[in-house]
Design a binder for these strands. Sequence first.
DNA 1: ATGGTGGACCTTCCA
Length: 263
Amino acid sequence: MRIASWNVNSLNARLPRVEEWLQRLEPDVVCIQETKLANDSFPALAFEALGYSSAHHGQGQWNGVAILSRVGLDDVVVDFADGGEPDVDARVIWATCAGVRVASVYVPNGREVDHEHYHYKLAWLGRLRAHLDANHSADEPLAVLGDFNIAPEDDDVWDINAFAGKTHVTPRERAALDTIKEWGLTDTFRHIWPENPGLFSYYDYTAGRFHKRQGIRIDLVLATQTLIDTATSAIVDRNGRKAWDGNKPSDHVPIYADFAIDA
DNA sequence: ATGGTGGACCTTCCA
């Protein structure tokens, strides 16, 4: 089973890139973030034409997450089922695809350290943990994919010194991510690559960062041990960002992992 | 250079 994730930074702007990428990569399950679409504007028919069922949790101008699957899409849940109030943003959707429980997550950015949005980010990860505690067991085949807006380790950043005092690398953010992992999830990329050889999933549009390979790895495939045991590859698909003709790239690169289980 | 780029949208917010 090939499971992929991509923060597309507007599905409206990126749909041709996404369609080309789907046909090239042939993933079984795809998690999309930042659709920036309302549910009634989601291009379900375009994905159906490529063989994918889909489920979308959108709000319009900002955020928006989706799951596509060509191996079944059941038991869709949006947001958190943790007994709390609905999230103010559309940032998480869940579905079961060929027996694997999948989440597509768009973790809040945080903006600045100690900004109100930074505390929302930490609390949001706490709710993700609470949802896992309340609804799932770590012995299930389960994967949480998406834009975590946190670089797990210093070598997931092109120059850690450039991030002094900035979000995405602070101990509090990494501790919040560790709380998710401690539930029973492993970073599939790190499992395959014990040291990051310079593969990053996000490049700021400005300053030619992509071409200078000055990026950070903040898009992750977190998987339970039963899946990790079958992992055969984990890739940050640098070429996928632009698909074929180089026009209108996202600021994120698609990622994917292959698991040797029946899809 | 309080810069740079891109997407939302309508003048400014967000990443």
